[in-house]
Every structure is written in C-alpha cells, then in structure tokens.
C-alpha cells in the first residue's frame, strides 16, 4: 500500500506547480487553471489527511472546495471573457495600465 506521505508529497508538488504556473504563464486562463491546480493539490492533501485521522470532515471540506472552485470559475471566466471582448487578448502582461 502506498504510504500517506506519498500523497502529501504529490500534493505539495502539485501545489508548487500550480504556484509556478501562476508566476510564469501570461495567459489569464492558464493562470486561472494553475490556481485550480493549487486548490486541487489542497484537496488531495485533505483526502490524504482524512486517511490519517480517520474522519470524514476532510472529505467534506473537499466538496466545499470543489464547489467554491466551480463558483470561482463562473466569476473568473466571466471576467476573463469580458476582458477578451474589450481587448481581444487575455495576456495579463498587457493589463498593466494601473501602476505606480
């Protein structure tokens, strides 16, 4: 059987990848997906910890996170679409008129 720590390490790797994605990608959509990756890394951790503690609450949390992520998609995509409409681009590096 695969030890729990493996899951945790995987979750950490996924989380880091997600964070790196946010840092490195320019496309708003991809960044957004990276954030989803971070959330899912957390989910994985929850599930793994649930195993350790033998309780359900972690798994319940996962559902909440998924629901929230879905809501986030709704808001996020709406925003990204709006921006695409006005600029024909979702390159966030072009979104730098506000600075200083």
């Amino acid at each position: 059987m695969v030890p729990v720590s493996y899951y945790l390490i995987l979750s950490a790797i996924l989380f880091s990848l997600g964070a790196l994605g946010v840092l490195m990608r320019r496309n708003a959509l991809v960044i957004f997906m990276s954030i989803e990756l971070m959330l899912n890394a957390a989910n994985l951790a929850f599930v793994a910890f649930t195993r350790v503690h033998e309780t359900f609450s972690g798994q319940i949390f996962v559902f909440f996170v998924m629901a929230v992520a879905a809501a986030e998609v709704a808001v996020g995509l709406a925003l990204i679409v709006t921006i695409y409409r006005s600029r024909q681009s979702v390159d966030i590096d072009q979104l730098s008129s506000l600075k200083g």
Binding site: I35, M38, A42, A45, F49, H53, E72, V75, I92, L95
Partner: peptide, 27 residues
C-alpha cells in the same frame, strides 16, 4: 476590468494558500 481581473487572480491565488494552510492544519 483590469482591477477586477487582478483582484480576482491574486485573490484566488492567495485563497489557494489559505486552503492549503487549512489542509495542513487539518492534517
């Protein structure tokens, strides 16, 4: 628009940390 998207992306990004933090606390 720019403000909204910036706020959203960074907010979501930071809530990713919160969730992971909660996961660790739970763990």
């Amino acid at each position: 628009e720019e403000a909204g998207l910036k706020y959203f992306l960074l907010g979501a990004f930071s809530s990713g940390f919160v969730v992971y933090g909660i996961a660790l606390a739970f763990g």
